[in-house]
Protein backbone atom coordinates (compact mmCIF):
# COMPACT_ATOMS: atom_id res chain seq x y z
CA UNK A 1 0.00 0.00 0.00
CA UNK A 2 1.17 3.49 -0.78
CA UNK A 3 1.97 5.82 2.12
CA UNK A 4 -0.26 8.57 0.77
CA UNK A 5 -3.10 6.29 -0.31
CA UNK A 6 -6.57 7.68 -0.79
CA UNK A 7 -8.88 7.31 2.15
CA UNK A 8 -12.14 7.19 0.17
CA UNK A 9 -14.27 4.42 1.61
CA UNK A 10 -16.78 3.31 -1.02
CA UNK A 11 -14.62 3.48 -4.15
CA UNK A 12 -12.14 0.70 -3.36
CA UNK A 13 -15.00 -1.58 -2.37
CA UNK A 14 -16.66 -0.87 -5.68
CA UNK A 15 -13.39 -1.54 -7.49
CA UNK A 16 -12.87 -4.85 -5.73
CA UNK A 17 -16.42 -6.03 -6.07
CA UNK A 18 -16.32 -7.56 -9.59
CA UNK A 19 -13.17 -9.52 -8.82
CA UNK A 20 -14.43 -10.74 -5.47
CA UNK A 21 -17.81 -11.68 -6.88
CA UNK A 22 -16.31 -13.69 -9.72
CA UNK A 23 -13.88 -15.59 -7.54
CA UNK A 24 -16.57 -16.25 -4.94
CA UNK A 25 -18.92 -17.79 -7.50
CA UNK A 26 -16.45 -19.43 -9.84
CA UNK A 27 -13.54 -20.23 -7.57
CA UNK A 28 -14.38 -20.63 -3.90
CA UNK A 29 -17.76 -22.23 -4.36
CA UNK A 30 -16.58 -24.88 -6.86
CA UNK A 31 -13.39 -25.58 -4.88
CA UNK A 32 -15.43 -26.07 -1.73
CA UNK A 33 -17.94 -28.15 -3.58
CA UNK A 34 -15.20 -30.41 -4.91
CA UNK A 35 -14.01 -31.00 -1.37
CA UNK A 36 -17.46 -31.77 0.04
CA UNK A 37 -18.63 -33.97 -2.81
CA UNK A 38 -15.46 -36.03 -2.48
CA UNK A 39 -17.06 -37.39 0.72
CA UNK A 40 -20.28 -38.40 -1.01
CA UNK A 41 -21.33 -41.11 -3.37
CA UNK A 42 -23.37 -39.72 -6.23
CA UNK A 43 -26.21 -41.69 -7.68
CA UNK A 44 -25.40 -42.12 -11.39
CA UNK A 45 -28.97 -41.29 -12.37
CA UNK A 46 -29.06 -38.09 -10.35
CA UNK A 47 -31.19 -39.33 -7.44
CA UNK A 48 -29.49 -37.84 -4.41
CA UNK A 49 -26.21 -38.69 -2.74
CA UNK A 50 -25.02 -40.59 0.28
CA UNK A 51 -22.26 -39.65 2.69
CA UNK A 52 -19.47 -42.19 2.48
CA UNK A 53 -16.65 -40.47 4.38
CA UNK A 54 -13.23 -41.29 3.03
CA UNK A 55 -14.46 -44.20 0.95
CA UNK A 56 -13.84 -42.39 -2.33
CA UNK A 57 -10.24 -41.87 -1.30
CA UNK A 58 -9.60 -45.38 -0.07
CA UNK A 59 -11.20 -46.68 -3.22
CA UNK A 60 -8.72 -44.66 -5.26
CA UNK A 61 -5.62 -45.74 -3.38
CA UNK A 62 -6.56 -49.37 -3.83
CA UNK A 63 -7.48 -48.99 -7.48
CA UNK A 64 -4.92 -50.61 -9.76
CA UNK A 65 -5.94 -48.40 -12.61
CA UNK A 66 -5.59 -45.20 -10.59
CA UNK A 67 -2.13 -46.20 -9.45
CA UNK A 68 -1.16 -46.98 -13.01
CA UNK A 69 -2.31 -43.53 -14.11
CA UNK A 70 -0.49 -41.93 -11.18
CA UNK A 71 2.71 -43.77 -12.09
CA UNK A 72 2.44 -42.68 -15.69
CA UNK A 73 1.79 -39.09 -14.59
CA UNK A 74 4.94 -39.04 -12.48
CA UNK A 75 7.07 -40.48 -15.26
CA UNK A 76 5.49 -38.20 -17.82
CA UNK A 77 6.06 -35.13 -15.61
CA UNK A 78 9.68 -35.97 -14.91
CA UNK A 79 10.53 -36.60 -18.55
CA UNK A 80 8.66 -33.62 -19.96
CA UNK A 81 10.11 -31.28 -17.34
CA UNK A 82 13.64 -32.53 -17.80
CA UNK A 83 13.73 -32.46 -21.58
CA UNK A 84 11.89 -29.13 -21.91
CA UNK A 85 14.30 -27.47 -19.50
CA UNK A 86 17.44 -29.06 -20.91
CA UNK A 87 16.68 -28.29 -24.55
CA UNK A 88 15.52 -24.77 -23.75
CA UNK A 89 18.68 -24.09 -21.76
CA UNK A 90 20.86 -25.35 -24.61
CA UNK A 91 19.09 -23.15 -27.14
CA UNK A 92 19.09 -20.13 -24.82
CA UNK A 93 22.81 -20.38 -24.13
CA UNK A 94 23.57 -20.61 -27.84
CA UNK A 95 21.13 -17.86 -28.79
CA UNK A 96 22.69 -15.62 -26.15
CA UNK A 97 26.15 -16.33 -27.52
CA UNK A 98 25.80 -15.86 -31.26
CA UNK A 99 26.08 -12.36 -32.61
CA UNK A 100 24.55 -12.92 -36.01
CA UNK A 101 20.87 -13.74 -36.41
CA UNK A 102 20.18 -13.72 -32.67
CA UNK A 103 16.82 -12.05 -33.15
CA UNK A 104 15.72 -14.41 -35.90
CA UNK A 105 16.62 -17.43 -33.81
CA UNK A 106 14.72 -15.97 -30.89
CA UNK A 107 11.58 -15.58 -32.97
CA UNK A 108 11.88 -19.02 -34.54
CA UNK A 109 12.39 -20.69 -31.19
CA UNK A 110 9.57 -18.97 -29.33
CA UNK A 111 6.58 -18.77 -31.65
CA UNK A 112 5.35 -22.22 -30.66
CA UNK A 113 4.46 -20.68 -27.28
CA UNK A 114 1.29 -19.41 -28.94
CA UNK A 115 0.17 -22.81 -30.26
CA UNK A 116 -2.72 -24.29 -28.30
CA UNK A 117 -1.98 -27.68 -26.67
CA UNK A 118 -4.68 -29.58 -28.61
CA UNK A 119 -3.40 -28.06 -31.84
CA UNK A 120 0.07 -29.21 -30.84
CA UNK A 121 -1.50 -32.63 -30.37
CA UNK A 122 -2.99 -32.39 -33.83
CA UNK A 123 0.45 -31.57 -35.20
CA UNK A 124 1.68 -34.67 -33.36
CA UNK A 125 -0.88 -36.73 -35.24
CA UNK A 126 0.59 -35.47 -38.51
CA UNK A 127 4.20 -36.00 -37.50
CA UNK A 128 3.50 -39.52 -36.24
CA UNK A 129 1.10 -40.43 -39.08
CA UNK A 130 1.42 -44.13 -39.59
CA UNK A 131 1.79 -44.08 -43.36
CA UNK A 132 3.94 -41.01 -43.99
CA UNK A 133 4.56 -39.08 -40.78
CA UNK A 134 8.15 -37.75 -40.92
CA UNK A 135 8.90 -38.97 -37.42
CA UNK A 136 7.33 -42.40 -37.99
CA UNK A 137 9.43 -42.63 -41.16
CA UNK A 138 12.51 -41.77 -39.19
CA UNK A 139 11.76 -44.45 -36.60
CA UNK A 140 10.91 -46.97 -39.30
CA UNK A 141 14.37 -46.38 -40.72
CA UNK A 142 15.74 -47.61 -37.40
CA UNK A 143 13.35 -50.55 -37.42
CA UNK A 144 10.80 -49.19 -34.99
CA UNK A 145 7.29 -49.61 -36.32
CA UNK A 146 5.56 -46.68 -34.70
CA UNK A 147 1.80 -47.16 -34.10
CA UNK A 148 0.27 -44.12 -32.46
CA UNK A 149 -2.95 -44.79 -30.58
CA UNK A 150 -2.50 -48.53 -30.66
CA UNK A 151 0.72 -49.24 -28.84
CA UNK A 152 0.73 -47.88 -25.25
CA UNK A 153 4.43 -47.12 -25.28
CA UNK A 154 4.38 -45.44 -28.70
CA UNK A 155 1.46 -43.24 -27.71
CA UNK A 156 3.15 -42.25 -24.46
CA UNK A 157 6.32 -41.45 -26.40
CA UNK A 158 4.40 -39.20 -28.79
CA UNK A 159 2.69 -37.44 -25.87
CA UNK A 160 6.04 -36.65 -24.30
CA UNK A 161 7.61 -35.44 -27.54
CA UNK A 162 4.69 -33.16 -28.33
CA UNK A 163 4.49 -31.82 -24.77
CA UNK A 164 8.20 -31.03 -24.81
CA UNK A 165 7.92 -29.37 -28.21
CA UNK A 166 5.13 -27.17 -26.89
CA UNK A 167 6.97 -26.25 -23.66
CA UNK A 168 10.52 -25.55 -24.88
CA UNK A 169 9.66 -22.02 -26.12
CA UNK A 170 8.44 -20.69 -22.74
CA UNK A 171 11.50 -22.05 -20.98
CA UNK A 172 13.68 -20.67 -23.74
CA UNK A 173 12.23 -17.17 -23.27
CA UNK A 174 12.82 -17.26 -19.51
CA UNK A 175 16.33 -18.69 -19.76
CA UNK A 176 17.32 -16.19 -22.41
CA UNK A 177 16.04 -13.27 -20.40
CA UNK A 178 17.77 -14.70 -17.34
CA UNK A 179 21.04 -14.95 -19.26
CA UNK A 180 20.70 -11.45 -20.58
CA UNK A 181 20.18 -10.08 -17.11
CA UNK A 182 23.55 -11.37 -15.92
CA UNK A 183 25.61 -8.20 -15.59
CA UNK A 184 28.26 -7.63 -18.22
CA UNK A 185 30.85 -7.00 -15.54
CA UNK A 186 30.27 -10.46 -14.05
CA UNK A 187 30.79 -12.10 -17.43
CA UNK A 188 33.93 -10.09 -17.98
CA UNK A 189 35.28 -10.93 -14.56
CA UNK A 190 34.62 -14.61 -15.31
CA UNK A 191 36.41 -14.21 -18.61
CA UNK A 192 39.49 -12.99 -16.75
CA UNK A 193 39.33 -15.76 -14.19
CA UNK A 194 38.70 -18.73 -16.39
CA UNK A 195 39.89 -19.84 -19.78
CA UNK A 196 37.47 -22.66 -20.37
CA UNK A 197 34.05 -21.71 -21.69
CA UNK A 198 32.48 -24.90 -20.38
CA UNK A 199 33.84 -24.32 -16.90
CA UNK A 200 32.70 -20.71 -17.00
CA UNK A 201 29.22 -21.91 -17.82
CA UNK A 202 29.01 -24.41 -14.95
CA UNK A 203 30.83 -22.22 -12.40
CA UNK A 204 29.30 -18.82 -13.10
CA UNK A 205 26.41 -18.81 -15.55
CA UNK A 206 24.57 -21.88 -14.33
CA UNK A 207 24.44 -20.87 -10.63
CA UNK A 208 23.31 -17.38 -11.61
CA UNK A 209 20.54 -18.95 -13.68
CA UNK A 210 19.47 -21.18 -10.82
CA UNK A 211 16.69 -18.87 -9.55
CA UNK A 212 15.15 -18.83 -13.03
CA UNK A 213 15.64 -22.58 -13.21
CA UNK A 214 13.86 -23.20 -9.90
CA UNK A 215 10.96 -21.03 -10.95
CA UNK A 216 10.73 -22.87 -14.27
CA UNK A 217 10.97 -26.24 -12.57
CA UNK A 218 7.72 -25.56 -10.71
CA UNK A 219 6.09 -24.03 -13.77
CA UNK A 220 7.02 -27.04 -15.85
CA UNK A 221 5.71 -29.52 -13.32
CA UNK A 222 2.43 -27.61 -13.22
CA UNK A 223 2.39 -27.54 -17.01
CA UNK A 224 2.99 -31.27 -17.29
CA UNK A 225 0.25 -32.00 -14.79
CA UNK A 226 -2.46 -29.68 -16.04
CA UNK A 227 -1.82 -27.90 -19.31
CA UNK A 228 -1.01 -31.01 -21.29
CA UNK A 229 -4.68 -32.01 -21.18
CA UNK A 230 -5.22 -30.85 -24.76
CA UNK A 231 -2.17 -32.73 -26.05
CA UNK A 232 -3.26 -35.95 -24.41
CA UNK A 233 -6.89 -35.65 -25.41
CA UNK A 234 -5.98 -35.10 -29.06
CA UNK A 235 -3.39 -37.84 -29.24
CA UNK A 236 -5.89 -40.21 -27.63
CA UNK A 237 -8.30 -39.05 -30.31
CA UNK A 238 -10.89 -38.64 -27.58
CA UNK A 239 -10.90 -42.39 -26.98
CA UNK A 240 -8.79 -43.05 -23.90
CA UNK A 241 -9.35 -46.82 -24.00
CA UNK A 242 -6.07 -48.45 -23.07
CA UNK A 243 -4.03 -45.40 -23.98
CA UNK A 244 -1.93 -43.58 -21.43
CA UNK A 245 -3.47 -40.69 -19.54
CA UNK A 246 -2.55 -38.30 -16.75
CA UNK A 247 -4.32 -37.69 -13.45
CA UNK A 248 -6.07 -34.56 -14.67
CA UNK A 249 -7.30 -36.38 -17.72
CA UNK A 250 -8.69 -39.10 -15.49
CA UNK A 251 -10.59 -36.54 -13.38
CA UNK A 252 -12.27 -35.46 -16.57
CA UNK A 253 -12.92 -38.96 -17.87
CA UNK A 254 -14.35 -40.31 -14.60
CA UNK A 255 -16.40 -37.27 -13.77
CA UNK A 256 -17.60 -36.12 -17.12
CA UNK A 257 -17.87 -39.38 -19.05
CA UNK A 258 -18.21 -41.93 -16.26
CA UNK A 259 -20.45 -39.76 -14.07
CA UNK A 260 -18.54 -40.82 -10.97
CA UNK A 261 -18.76 -37.45 -9.30
CA UNK A 262 -17.53 -38.53 -5.87
CA UNK A 263 -14.51 -40.37 -7.20
CA UNK A 264 -13.68 -37.58 -9.58
CA UNK A 265 -13.96 -35.02 -6.77
CA UNK A 266 -11.67 -37.06 -4.57
CA UNK A 267 -9.16 -37.06 -7.42
CA UNK A 268 -9.56 -33.29 -7.73
CA UNK A 269 -8.86 -32.86 -4.04
CA UNK A 270 -5.72 -34.98 -4.31
CA UNK A 271 -4.55 -32.79 -7.17
CA UNK A 272 -5.38 -29.65 -5.19
CA UNK A 273 -3.20 -30.84 -2.34
CA UNK A 274 -0.44 -31.61 -4.83
CA UNK A 275 -0.61 -28.12 -6.35
CA UNK A 276 -0.75 -26.48 -2.94
CA UNK A 277 2.36 -28.35 -1.88
CA UNK A 278 4.12 -27.28 -5.05
CA UNK A 279 3.11 -23.67 -4.51
CA UNK A 280 4.26 -23.59 -0.92
CA UNK A 281 7.54 -25.05 -2.10
CA UNK A 282 7.74 -22.37 -4.77
CA UNK A 283 7.05 -19.53 -2.33
CA UNK A 284 9.79 -20.78 -0.06
CA UNK A 285 12.15 -20.84 -3.00
CA UNK A 286 11.20 -17.32 -3.96
CA UNK A 287 11.91 -16.21 -0.41
CA UNK A 288 15.33 -17.80 -0.65
CA UNK A 289 15.84 -16.15 -3.97
CA UNK A 290 15.35 -12.69 -2.49
CA UNK A 291 18.19 -13.40 -0.12
CA UNK A 292 20.20 -14.80 -2.97
CA UNK A 293 20.21 -11.66 -5.07
Amino acid sequence: MKRAGFSTKWLPILLLLPQLLIIAIFFYWPALHAVTSSFYLQDPFGFGQTFVGLENYTHLTSSVEYLKVAKFTVLFTVLVTFFSLALALLFAVKADKVLRGAKTYRTLLMWVYAVAPPVAGFIGLLMFNQTWGPLSDLFKFFGWDFTLGVNYFDTAFAMIVVSVWKQVPVNFIFFLSGLQSIPRSVREAALLDNRSGTRRFWDITFPLLAPTGFFLLITNITYSLFDTFGVIDTLNKGEPGNNPMTLVYKVFVDGFRGNDLGGSSAQSVILMILVLALTVFQFRLIERRIHYT
Binding site: P30, A31, S37, T222, G255
Partner: peptide
Protein backbone atom coordinates in the same frame (compact mmCIF):
# COMPACT_ATOMS: atom_id res chain seq x y z
CA UNK B 1 -2.90 -21.69 -6.25
CA UNK B 2 -5.53 -23.85 -7.91
CA UNK B 3 -5.85 -24.09 -11.68
CA UNK B 4 -9.27 -24.44 -13.25
CA UNK B 5 -8.55 -28.06 -14.14
CA UNK B 6 -8.78 -29.29 -10.56
CA UNK B 7 -12.19 -27.74 -9.91
CA UNK B 8 -13.55 -28.25 -13.37
CA UNK B 9 -16.62 -30.36 -12.58
CA UNK B 10 -18.14 -28.17 -9.85
Amino acid sequence: LLPLEVRILP
